[in-house]
Computed example of a mutant assay.
Amino acid sequence: MPENVPVLTIDGPSGAGKGTVSRIVAGRLGWHYLDSGALYRAVGVAASWANLDVSDAAALVRCTFDTRVRFADDSGKGLRVLVNEVDATEELRLETTGAVASAIAAFPEVRSALKERQRAFRQPPGLVADGRDMGTVIFPDARFKVFLTASAEERADRRYKQLKDKGVSVTIDGLLREILARDARDAQRTVAPLRPADDAVLIDTTGLDIEQVVERVLAIVAP
């Protein structure tokens, strides 16, 4: 049955709009939603809580198997992510958590440990999977594949506005450096590097608002 369930993969670099677009599209289609990045961030948070050495692959794999992750849709607060039953939603959104997640995602052992957990989200009536290797590694047979991108400058500006709205003190230059460094790590890693699937539809979101991107993605699924 799972192999017959339609999947829409939405991959792309940090700040391209994957998360927001994927959640809206999943809601419009009435499909399940997988935030694969949240799984890696959850392992990163759990590793930080346990004071693990993030260069110790064996310890991270154990942490991956021991970490319980649950998504809870709170109508008042939006999607919440519970790590070992602790609401870690806000901590998962921090730039430092994203950097840790990117670092541990470079370990083949960690990616392998999380692969089947991600594939288990494929349930009827369909799945929208958001990440960096959804269309290339996790769901290579997906019926629909999209790769979102945007200029590094626009992605830094979007992140700056998000964090400023939350009262977080950041600078555009600092965020741009972090985004460029993360892009380089994700693209150059030997396992599942960030790249569009050969059959993915590329959408540059620079200068587009969320609704415009959502409509373009929906047109791919239901032309």
Score class of each variant (00 low, 15 high):
118 Q>P: 02
168 V>D: 08
13 P>W: 04
155 R>A: 02
40 Y>S: 01
141 D>S: 06
187 A>V: 13
208 L>E: 09
204 D>G: 11
156 A>Q: 03
187 A>W: 07
111 R>M: 08
176 L>R: 11
56 D>C: 07
149 T>G: 02
40 Y>T: 01
167 G>W: 00
22 S>N: 10
194 L>M: 09
145 K>C: 13
8 L>R: 03
46 A>G: 07
173 D>G: 08
122 R>H: 05
45 V>A: 15
30 G>S: 15
8 L>W: 09
128 V>L: 06
160 Y>N: 11
160 Y>E: 15
136 T>A: 05
143 R>A: 03
63 C>W: 01
119 R>S: 07
12 G>L: 00
203 I>Y: 05
100 V>T: 06
100 V>A: 10
219 A>N: 13
110 V>W: 02
46 A>N: 14
79 L>H: 07
67 T>C: 07
198 D>Y: 08
198 D>K: 14
71 F>G: 01
41 R>Y: 12
57 A>P: 02
2 P>N: 15
136 T>Q: 04
100 V>N: 07
109 E>A: 15
11 D>P: 12
109 E>H: 13
183 D>Y: 13
113 A>T: 14
21 V>R: 05
133 D>H: 06
72 A>Y: 15
195 R>E: 14
220 I>Q: 12
117 R>N: 00
130 D>T: 01
94 L>K: 14
120 A>P: 00
76 G>L: 10
196 P>T: 04
152 A>G: 14
187 A>G: 10
89 T>I: 05
190 T>D: 14
220 I>H: 14
1 M>R: 13
66 D>C: 12
68 R>G: 13
122 R>D: 03
137 V>S: 09
203 I>N: 02
123 Q>V: 11
172 I>P: 02
127 L>C: 10
154 E>Y: 09
63 C>N: 11
177 R>Q: 12
86 V>D: 03
147 F>S: 01
201 V>L: 13
72 A>I: 12
188 Q>D: 08
152 A>I: 12
